[in-house]
Design a protein around this nucleic acid. Structure first.
Lengths: 185, 185
DNA sequence: TGGGTCATGTAACCTGTTACATGATTAG
DNA sequence: CTAATCATGTAACAGGTTACATGACCCA
């Protein structure tokens, strides 16, 4: 569902091959929605069948040929429909497998649980460093108005990551304190 | 994957029917991992086939009979393996379809985008109220040590929801300010 | 000559969703 | 009489993951 519209949105900026779309995904949308290249090829195929995209072969002498996809009017319509349609309940739901583990941690010994949370904190800390770097790379001063208009929304997704990982760190800290506190009773 | 272990974890507390597990899920794990009852029945079935569970029929005269599942030694082993095994990268990843929309919002007009974020903020605000209520329902004073040991971890998942929705609200507020600011340039 | 990048894909599988079927009992 | 609740499930489909296949070119 969402992967499809991610591809469609990128193709709305300009035509691309599946291979290139995968690279673009890796450095942007993959930060909040994961995809495999095999899935990208499949989605592009179905979207072409459904008339959302057209494709042509770009011949290359030194490298393998590329299959370049372009968005159609129908595709644009579908993209707009998805963007406009007031987001659904599903997009609000938390989906977090780590919390299932936390839920059942009562069986384990507290020391191990503290270690688990410290590990969790550490990983969020690393993710935070990365995302702050990405966030800092948006140089609005060097952009024209057109570029800027797009970029502020791109940056927003990075800022979400920043807020999110910071929140996870704060939560982990408090949960570690809770466990320690419980151990001393 | 995660749904399976959610069920297994609950069955580790005591035997239950699929129908009851669904009700328990609805009031706990569904807050961070969604399941359908049809999926629960399927997972229970496969886990029984794999020897993780056993089942027997509990006959009822006034209501339909229940198929009651109990965890086996093998099942316990699998649960522990999953709980112990240091969580994988996948459990760290953000998966958020709303951010895909945000990413492509540059094409829309700013007023509509502000409305979208205000709607998002509102829904998070409602979710926050709900989760704060749930969080407040943990009455540790009335619990014995055994109950408490479980409950602090249950509460942690609610606290995560609390932190999460508050973070989303803060983010939305800042993003609305960003859009307004950009409009006045 | 071995590994990396470029480039496209298929097959099998697992997870999750939607819709439907059945049938008894109970409350309004 | 109707709707809800109790209770278990199946079938079809959509979405996503893992593993594998192919083959040329380039660099060390």
């Amino acid at each position: 569902m969402a992967s499809k519209y991610g591809l469609l949105g990128l193709l709305n900026y300009g035509e691309q091959s599946g291979y290139d779309l995968n690279r673009i995904f890796t450095h942007s949308i993959n930060n909040f929605w994961h995809t495999q290249i095999s899935q990208i090829y499949k989605e592009l195929n179905t979207m072409e069948k459904d008339g959302w995209l057209t494709s042509h072969i770009a011949y290359q002498s030194d490298k393998p040929n590329r299959k370049v996809y372009a968005i159609t009017a129908k595709g644009k319509e579908e993209l707009d429909k998805w963007l406009d349609n007031d987001f659904v309940e599903k997009e609000m739901q938390i989906r977090n497998a780590f919390l299932i583990k936390v839920f059942f941690l009562g069986e384990n010994n507290p020391e191990d649980n503290i270690a688990l949370f410290e590990n969790y904190r550490q990983r969020n800390s690393e993710a935070l460093q990365k995302i702050i770097m990405i966030e800092g790379m948006f140089a609005f001063d060097e952009m024209d108005k057109e570029q800027r208009r797009m970029s502020i929304y791109h940056k927003m997704t990075a800022t979400f990551g920043h807020y999110y990982h910071q929140m996870c760190i704060d939560w982990a800290d408090e949960m570690i304190a809770t466990i320690r506190n419980e151990m001393n009773i």
